[in-house]
Design a protein around this nucleic acid. Sequence first.
RNA 1: GGACCAUUGGUGUAGCGGCCCAACAUGCUUCCCUGUCACGGAAGAGAUCACGAGUUCGAAUCUCGUAUGGUCCGCCA
Length: 582
Amino acid sequence: MERTAYCGNLRITNVGESVTLLGWIANKRNLGSLVFIDLRDASGYVQLIAKNPDILPEIKNESVVQVRGVVSKKDVPNPSLPTGEIEVEITSMTLLSKAALTPFIIADKSDALEETRLKYRYLDLRRPCMLHNLRVRSKIVSLWHRYFEAHDFLEVETPILNLATPEGARDYLVPSRLHHGSFYALPQSPQLWKQLLMIAGVERYFQVARCFRDEDLRADRQPEFTQLDEEVSFMDQEEILTLNEGFLALLFKEIKGIDISLPLRRMPYWEAMDVYGSDKPDTRYGLHLIDLKDVFAGVEFDGFQGAYIRGIVVPGSAKSTSRKAVDELNMEARKFRLKGVMTLKLENGVLGGSFAKFLNEEQKAKVISSLSLKEDDLLLFAASPDRRAVDFGMGAIRTLEAKKLNLIDPNTFDLLWVVDFPMFDPIPGEEGKYTAEHHPFTRPRDEDLHLLDSNPEEVLAYAYDIVINGYECGGGTLRIYDHDTQWKIFNLLGLSDEDVARKFGWFIDAFQYGVPPHGGMAYGLDRLVMIFTGTDNIRDVIAFPKNLQAVDPTSKAPARVSKEQLDAVGITLIEGDEHEEE
RNA sequence: GGACCAUUGGUGUAGCGGCCCAACAUGCUUCCCUGUCACGGAAGAGAUCACGAGUUCGAAUCUCGUAUGGUCCGCCA
């Protein structure tokens, strides 16, 4: 179609040009014999002016029009728009498609609820801020390709229809028509395939990989999501981190214009847990967790028996933290298997709070001096024999207090690697049983291999997560490349020899034929876009996301299918599961 | 599987036992307007307050249940 310019690109230098524009009518201001129209296309807005409104067709908001006109300088510029110095004097306008009244106003400052926006996602995406999010997403993927191609990585597509894996998240299953009773699974990640590519000698692989997990959703979790996936042979952990720091630096430079300083900080897992109460710490603010074992030495309190005791000092918050506020903190603490959070407050020089009655004067003085408590300081702490519970619980409270005190500057970016993850995570309540902290293909550190049999909990792994502003944006590991070690890890995770042979034989057999030492990582693309667009809702960075019930709000998928479709794949729904008539 | 919160004209909110067959903003319709840019001004249309039961002389308002949506825990190797 005839189109000589894009709305958002017109500038003062274009004054005098005749242009033909295509776009949507975003808004109109009718002054009687003078009409202003904001025209929007994918590039942005420009103001149109009709000095003779009789020539205009019927102009409903969001109708699509073709406009011919002349760019002219505005008497009074509008500095809030990039095109604010000019306007286009309409010589003719053709209505291409008339719009019905939209359910909500198409503008960045829309007041519609997310539910409404998602139902009419195609209208929601017309809002420039949403289009911007899609642009940032596209830019990240583009930089991903640019960077890893420059480092000789090869993009390889891996299968979408896979063997169901017994470990990990629940699989999305796909029934097979040719093999009644058999099912494929959608990939949770291309993990095994990319390791086979290393064994195949590809050496450097990368892929934009769609992944699927049939688990419950969250504000930052979707059932289908995109990983920027990479795997490389013959690199050690430091080499992989350095390679990826180059990519991260490129992202921040190209998207934000920020030079991040390299190398990034590497923080051991247990430091992150004990000091920040998280394996994805937000280090933009303090409120560090303090070990209180020594401070409370000699205090008679049942809950301290064999317990880890950790707390945070919240400055200037003793008076402002009400009973109700403490109740809310207790609610939060209980989410992490803690009984609650205890308080000490220094008010008017006297130590009060819920725990004060367990302390004698001498002990109170010790608490004040050893923590250097100042007037109006609040000490929040918890105790539990479960180290992770104390750390995660106080970490959650640290985050709440930081938000309350407004300690987080949203315009700063804070990047670090969390390294030295434990190989295994004990299953609470089941002595001697473990799950893999990362995944079963993770390579234990060489210096810890001797602990595998005696003390598996102490084995650390070659595993690393990239954490930005408290979000885990990616992670990876070096992989086991020895057949016997891989087998042994499966055994430690509770799989019998028969289980391993049956479920992973097709994979582990490959380890007999010469395996390069290899490792890799994957970024959560959706999380990266969230960081770069400053949103905390994953649905804002995906064009057509699912809602929390894993339903597509636009099409209402999933839905029942016809009996014919079920028959073709040999599936009968169980009784009582009423089947709606088609 | 569990906890908590929400649901009121097209949209977003207020109202939290009688001042409410419901208020405000915005959108919509009609009219006026030559410099607006969140244009302004005037008039108007538009809601059985998610659904079902209950408490009460009286329910948008209280209780219970259901549905839908959101946030979190479990879960997410």
